[in-house]
């Protein structure tokens, strides 16, 4: 369960104030696949960052499974992120000097697992995304779709409850995008991951179970809400 309560986030650039989220309140069920839509600047990514504990609201509360994420700080917040959230970004964001396997093993080094166990977990995650045959490839030796699949494997390696995906198909061709969306669906259905995916693409949003439409930092009407 993810609960946003009267959340406001204001960015200040120079002397200018920009209200990105404007008293947003929203409940999202755990184990569901949500698509966040809305025009640029509507606050989608900011909402994702707040849920993932990368950003802090100026007012209001963000609670994930009962934990007030906005109140966590420093090491506790880092640990919470490591335990609960996996991130997938539009630009894949793999570490270029590490192989696919090493990229996936990276978040596992924050766990008490032994090296052999970390390797096992990482190999399992890569198998899940269909990248078992590319373990020792560096990111630049992979296609965009493959990179994103490795990034998804990295996000799920520590088995977090929530996957936050910011435009995961934005840089991909149709087929690769389709594969990535299929993968997210599978993670939701088979492994009961809660998925929040920011997207501009209506076709991608169709794959989600719920669509949250944002506009100017508030909730717009969701035609499918309650359907």
């Amino acid at each position: 369960m993810i609960r946003l309560e009267n959340v406001t986030r204001v960015y200040r650039r120079g002397g200018e104030k920009l209200t990105v989220l404007d008293g947003l309140s929203l409940d999202m069920e755990g184990g569901k696949f949500y698509a966040l839509m809305g025009p640029s600047g509507s606050g989608k990514t900011t909402m994702l960052n707040l849920v993932g504990g990368l950003d802090r609201p100026d007012s209001g509360h963000v609670a994930v499974a009962g934990e007030d994420v906005g109140a966590l700080e420093g090491a506790a917040l880092s640990q919470w992120r490591a335990d609960n959230v996996g991130f997938v970004f539009q630009g894949f964001n793999l570490i270029p000097v590490l192989t696919a396997l090493e990229n996936v093993m990276l978040p596992l080094s924050l766990t008490p697992l032994s090296r052999a166990e970390r390797r096992k977990h990482a190999e399992f995650a890569l198998e899940l995304v269909g990248m078992s045959d590319r373990l020792s490839h560096r990111p630049q030796q992979l296609s965009g779709g493959q990179e994103q699949r490795v990034a998804i494997a990295r996000a799920i390696a520590t088995d977090p409850g929530i996957i936050l995906a910011d435009e995961p198909t934005g840089d991909l061709d149709r087929d690769s995008a389709d594969q990535v969306l299929g993968l997210l669906e599978r993670l939701n259905k088979e492994f009961q991951k809660t998925i929040l995916m920011v997207t501009h693409d209506p076709a991608a949003a169709e794959r989600a179970q719920r669509i949250v439409n944002l506009d100017k930092g508030r909730l717009a009407d969701d035609p499918r809400e309650g359907a």
Binding site: G52, L54, G74, A75, S78, Q79, W80, R81, A82, D83, F87, F89, G91, N93, I95, P96, L106, P107, L110, R154
Partner: peptide
Amino acid sequence: THEIGILLATGFR
């Protein structure tokens, strides 16, 4: 910078 962002987001302190 991006890599550092990833590391921090992943939970590295």
